Amino acid sequence: MSHTLLNYYEAIERASADMLEAARNGNWDEVVKLEGACAVLISQLKHAAKEKSLQAEEAKLKSRIMQRILLNDAEIRHLAEPWLEDLDKMMHGKTKTLH
C-alpha cells in the first residue's frame, strides 16, 4: 500500500507541473482547474496515509517530490502576483475600467 502513497505524491507533482505550465502560458482557468484536482488528490492522500506509512527510502523520495512541488508552487505564485495586483486594484476601483 505504501507504493500507492508515493503514487499520490507523484500525481500531485504532475498536477503541480501542469499548473506551472498553464501559469507560464497565462491560462489561469486551467491553473484553477488543476488546483481543484490537486485538492482532491491531497484529500485522498490524507485518507490513505492514515492506513499506511512510508518506508525510509520512500520517505526520502517523498521529500524530493515535495521539494519540487514547493518550487512549482513558488513559481506559480510569482507568476500570479501581477495578475493578483491588477485584480486587487480593479476590486478597489484604483484603475480605469476598459471599455
Rank of each mutant, 00 (worst) to 15 (best):
M91G: 08
A56F: 08
H3F: 10
K62V: 08
D73V: 07
L41S: 02
V31R: 01
L54Y: 04
L84Y: 09
A15W: 04
V32F: 10
N72T: 09
R64A: 15
V31C: 06
L45Q: 03
N72F: 05
Q44K: 06
E35V: 06
E51S: 14
T95C: 09
M19I: 03
N7L: 04
T4I: 09
A49E: 00
H92N: 14
S63F: 11
L87F: 07
D88T: 10
S63M: 13
V40F: 00
M91I: 11
Y8S: 03
N27F: 02
M1A: 07
N7C: 03
G93Y: 06
R14D: 14
I42G: 02
M66Y: 07
L70K: 05
K33E: 09
C38R: 12
N25I: 01
P82H: 07
A49D: 00
V40T: 12
H3M: 10
N27A: 06
N25H: 05
L71E: 15
A11F: 02
A15C: 11
L84K: 15
E30T: 15
K50V: 13
N7P: 00
E30M: 09
T97P: 08
A80N: 06
Q55E: 15
K89C: 04
S63N: 13
A80P: 00
A15L: 14
L20S: 01
K89V: 06
K60S: 14
L45F: 07
M1P: 11
N7D: 03
L5F: 06
G36H: 08
G36A: 12
G93I: 07
I65C: 02
A11L: 07
N27C: 03
L34K: 10
K94I: 11
Y8Q: 04
A17E: 10
R68K: 07
G93E: 09
N25R: 03
K50M: 15
L20Y: 01
A39H: 11
E57Q: 05
C38Q: 14
D18N: 08
A49C: 00
K46W: 03
N27I: 05
T4E: 12
M19R: 01
A49T: 00
S43E: 14
E58C: 07
R77K: 11
R24W: 00
C38I: 15
R64Y: 13
L5E: 07
N7F: 01
G36K: 04
T95Q: 12
D88Y: 10
E75W: 05
L6P: 09
A49L: 00
A56L: 12
I69S: 08
K94Q: 13
M19H: 00
M1I: 10
E10F: 11
A37G: 06
L45D: 03
S53G: 09
M19G: 01
A23R: 01
D29T: 06
L87A: 12
L5N: 11
K96E: 14
V31N: 01
D29L: 03
